[in-house]
Design a protein around this nucleic acid. Structure first.
Lengths: 203, 203
DNA sequence: GATTATACTGAACACTTGAGCAGATGTAAA
DNA sequence: TTTACATCTGCTCAAGTGTTCAGTATAATC
């Protein structure tokens, strides 16, 4: 991407604001009015420059036919992640900013994910509490000892899952609970996926 | 919201697809072409009906001036939350769907939020582990005993925070650690906010 | 000094587009 | 039957809008 002039950047910012925030592509004349430009051709020059520099494309002879390049269409979503707290600044100052916390960025657009609300405290020693959401990657099998979702008789439960020969062992993380053994030939059993995240809402 | 006819629904769906997905508002004639309608006035009638029923508004005398109502602009984001797992269906089948897990819906567009990565295991008994993200609501004070962010000498730390007279007490949730006492008149101290959520990425 | 890119004015042109009118057909409710 | 509404055709018109041409001026680059 080539360097933009100040004016070009201003106009690009305006376009981004319009299209991203207002879902509304301005006309050449609207852009001219916004910047106090009296000739549509001046705007045209800027748009041509922006197009040449790869910031946008235009549909010819079409009203409001500006299409922004991909990188300008997404707005940062989620919760700002604060790194070090710089002296004297508010916590969320840009200087402290480390990124954005969002499921999108954390789990990267994976469409085999689902969330499950945990009931009971059988996994409390693994840091999974009653009422937590676990984020699950749907997959048919697990490595031995991984935390996953076991579906027994269509009832979902979160446990550490071991396979010992033909027997499936579900191991809680709470000394008050006993491990459970399942013979898949006797009991309808399947694996719902692997737990890859935990989310808790405090009050 | 009044009932839509099949045709009106089709046109609304097309508008939603264009505006939401392609960021591109079609003209009356483009809509006509899309549905094999030969007169712009037929489309005009449909748009009038949709406007009357509150699905959209139109900017008069403006090209591509259709504005969808708020409820059609957002697409469901986040991770599907599964409730009960219905028999015989894949886990993420619509029948099991309970909603979507997203920071947006969980924390409702609150802009006083930030996230902080936790270092150390001083809060392990409160289910906050080393490497977790805590979601913090920025606020200047806390109720006694709430979990919050204490900023001491511009260093942020997560603890249960008590106020005892002039003294601030920071109480860890791990018997290996000792409570810490702070005199705000001697040590630069402020409250970074209240911890309202925990998020953990497993591997 | 010549060339190129940026930034703009002003006017004219032609296509794009929304708006409007007159009228037709079919369906469903009153 | 009457009424209301949805759906559509065909046409016209005016306003909206992108495009082009002819210039002017400045600064950076070669």
């Amino acid at each position: 991407m080539k360097q933009l002039t100040e004016k070009q950047q201003e106009i690009l910012d305006f376009l981004i604001e319009c299209i991203r925030e207002e879902r509304y592509t301005p006309t050449v004349r609207e852009i001219a009015e916004r910047f106090g430009i009296k000739s549509t051709n001046a705007v045209r020059d800027h748009l041509a420059a922006l197009e040449r520099k790869g910031c946008l494309t235009r549909r010819a002879n079409t009203s409001r036919g500006i299409e922004l390049a991909e990188e300008y269409l997404e707005k940062p979503e989620g919760i700002p992640i604060v790194g070090r707290v710089a002296a004297g600044l508010p916590v969320t100052a840009v200087e402290n900013l480390d990124g954005y916390l969002a499921f999108e960025t954390l789990f990267g657009g994976n469409d085999k994910l689902y969330a499950l609300r945990v009931e009971g405290d059988s996994m409390i020693d693994d840091g999974i509490w009653d009422g937590d959401y676990v984020i699950v990657h749907e997959q048919p099998s697990l490595d031995n000892g991984e935390i996953g979702v076991a579906i027994i008789d269509e009832e979902a439960t979160v446990k550490r899952i071991h396979r010992r020969g033909k027997i499936i062992e579900l191991i809680p993380a709470n000394e008050l609970y006993q491990p459970m053994e399942i013979d898949p030939e006797e009991t309808p059993f399947r694996i719902g996926g692997k737990v890859i995240g935990v989310h808790r809402r405090l009050r």
